[in-house]
Structure formats: structure tokens, C-alpha cells
Simulated scan of single mutants.
Amino acid sequence: MLQAEIKSLLKEDISILIKVPNSAKHYVCDCGEASLLTVKEAQAISAIFISHTHIDHFSNFDGIFRHQIGSGEKVVICGPRNIHQQIEARLKSYTWNLIDENAIEYEIREIVSKEEINVYTIRPPYWNLEYVKTQNVLFEDEYVNVDFAILDHKTDSIAYLFKEKDSVTFHENISDFKNGKWISELKTAFENNDPDKEIEIEGTLYKALGLFHLLTRNEGYKLGVIMDHAADEDNYKKIKDVFNHADMVYIETFYKDEDQEFAKMNHHSFASASGKIMKECNVKEAIPIHFSRRYTENDQQEIETAFYKAFRN
């Protein structure tokens, strides 16, 4: 099950680290101040997901990059329209005369629309962007695939859904056969929906379909991160399309209910609105995050109380 940790203190800008169990691979959503993010964790980040490039969500990109340079790895960066130009500008603002061209590579994926994602690469020491291709899938690796919604925050703000790959369980207790490589062959046939595949067990050939009852498909865990967004119906429709029945979602809850006029003015959400949309999405567990820095710990508790009242009522 994916594990998420908020790496920012109450008064700090938001950053969430997502860890893959039994793996050294991490992902990070937004690059806020994040005092709790360790050097080791920053070095293990293989993909960065930026919601939007307001300073409180993007200011610590340089700090993360500082710990990645020299790794020789390729790191993926996903973000909204023009993210490739903004990354290029950040990197070109420094002097790199002592850095080798193989020190690191970034692959930047600019989200233009749900169907249009432009891919660029950028490398030291000159950090010149190279256009690679346009694709319609944002991100997939051996552990997760990532869906997204483009929300309105008076600029594009990307909300991300991380879905673990489905797994297949073999029920040894109901099998009369000895364990062997045939189990992995059967799982492959099951995953590929190939019922006619012949599986050899102890010298006898069996059709895979007749063995599928030994397997169960386990749906992958769905973890969402919804950052800044206006509390309006257009955004809510997009959220429902992507985050319905998610297992856990972290959602921006910037203002108290009594300050919802500020929320409307600044294209943010507020406590009960965020809780209500999570309830309408049938999310199993929801966590309010990213509170205005004007608030105290007592204010945060008030926000959480209003959020959970709307979510669980």
C-alpha cells in the first residue's frame, strides 16, 4: 500500500512524499519548504509532481534538485502548462561550469490537456530544452500509474491520483498441485486475459481458464492529492471523474468556513466544501491539508472539525 507523509510543518509551504512499500523509490507532490524532508528521501525521489507554480508550491524545487545533482539518474517532472520553461529558467539561473553532462537528466511532462502531454528533456551543463514527443499518458512505472484532473485556481492546478498496479494472489490452500513456475505462468495468463493459454503442471497440460479459480485479483490502492482549487461545480465535476472511490485523498482546505469569502476571492477551497466533495466522491479516507498561514493550531483544529463533519455526516 502506498504511504504518504506530509513533510511540511504547520506554518510551512506544502510538500507530500509518497513512498512505495518494499522499494527505495519515492515520489513527491509539490515542492514547498518541507523541513521534514531528509537528504536521503530527496535523493530517492524518482518523480516530482507539481500542482502549480505559485511560490508556496514550487519554492523548494531547488533544494530537492540540490540533493539530486550528481546522481546520474533520470528524474521525471510532471506539471501544468509552461512547467518546462519554468524549470529551464530555474536551472539556467545558476553557474554549472563544474558539472558533467551526465550528472542528471530531467524529463519534463507538460500537461496541456487530458489528451495532450508534451515531453521534454533537459541536461547539464547548458540546460537546453529538447522536445521529445506528445503523448496522452502522464506517468506509469512498474509500481503505479498516475491519473490527473486539471482544476481552476485562476491558473491550472493539477490534482493527481496515484494508483498501485493490481496484484494477483495465488491460493495455495485450495490447490492440489505442487508449487512451481507454473504459478507465475498462470498469473501472466490471468493478467493478460488469456484463458486458452496451456499451463503444464507435473507433466500434464491444462487450460488456464480451468485454473483461474486459484487466483484473485487485488485492486491497487488509490491515493490522491488535490491541491489549490476554487470551490465551484466545474472543479467538482472534474474531481468526481478522477477521484471517485479513492482509498485516501489529501485535499486542500485553505480557509475556515467563516472565511469562505476569502476563499471565493482567492480561488481556494474551505473546510466544509472540501469535506463535502470528498463525501460525494465516496472516498474511504480524506485528510484536509494546506491551511492558510494566518491560522493558529486552534484554527487548524476548527478547520478539521468542520471538514470531518461535512465528510462523515
Rank of each mutant, 00 (worst) to 15 (best):
Q3N: 12
Q3F: 08
E5G: 01
S8C: 09
L10C: 01
K11L: 08
E12G: 02
D13I: 01
I14R: 11
S15L: 04
I16S: 11
L17I: 00
K19I: 09
P21S: 13
S23V: 12
S23D: 11
A24I: 07
A24M: 10
A24S: 14
K25F: 12
V28W: 05
C31P: 02
L37Q: 11
V39I: 11
K40Q: 15
E41T: 01
A47V: 11
F49R: 04
I50N: 04
H54T: 04
H57A: 07
H57N: 06
F58W: 15
S59R: 03
S59V: 05
F61N: 05
G63C: 01
I64F: 04
R66P: 01
R66N: 14
I69A: 11
S71I: 03
V75P: 04
C78E: 06
C78A: 14
G79Y: 01
G79D: 07
R81A: 05
I83K: 10
Q86F: 03
L91W: 08
Y94A: 11
Y94Q: 08
T95D: 11
W96F: 15
D100I: 11
D100Y: 12
E101C: 13
N102L: 07
I104M: 13
E107N: 04
I117W: 11
N118Y: 06
R123S: 12
R123W: 01
W127P: 05
Y131W: 13
V132D: 01
E142W: 00
E142R: 09
V144T: 02
N145E: 07
F148Q: 05
I150K: 09
L151R: 06
H153I: 03
K154F: 06
T155C: 15
F162Q: 08
K163N: 12
K165Y: 06
H171N: 14
S175G: 13
F177N: 15
N179I: 13
K181Y: 13
W182A: 04
I183W: 12
E185Q: 14
L186I: 06
T188M: 12
F190G: 02
E191F: 03
P195R: 07
D196G: 03
K197E: 08
E198F: 07
E200K: 12
E200S: 13
T204A: 13
T204K: 15
L209I: 07
G210S: 14
F212L: 02
E219S: 14
Y221K: 12
Y221E: 07
V225M: 15
I226D: 05
I226R: 08
D232V: 02
D234G: 04
Y236R: 09
K237F: 10
K237H: 13
K238D: 05
V242D: 03
V242I: 15
A246H: 02
Y250D: 06
Y250V: 09
I251E: 09
I251Q: 06
E252A: 09
D259W: 00
D259R: 00
E261Y: 03
E261K: 09
A263D: 09
H267T: 03
A271F: 00
A271D: 01
S272Y: 01
A273Y: 01
S274G: 02
G275Q: 03
K276C: 00
K279D: 00
E280M: 10
N282I: 05
V283T: 14
K284L: 09
I287R: 14
P288L: 06
P288W: 04
S292I: 07
R293F: 00
T296M: 00
Q300V: 14
E302T: 10
E302N: 10
I303F: 07
A306T: 06
A306R: 10
F307C: 08
A310G: 02
F311E: 01
N313F: 10
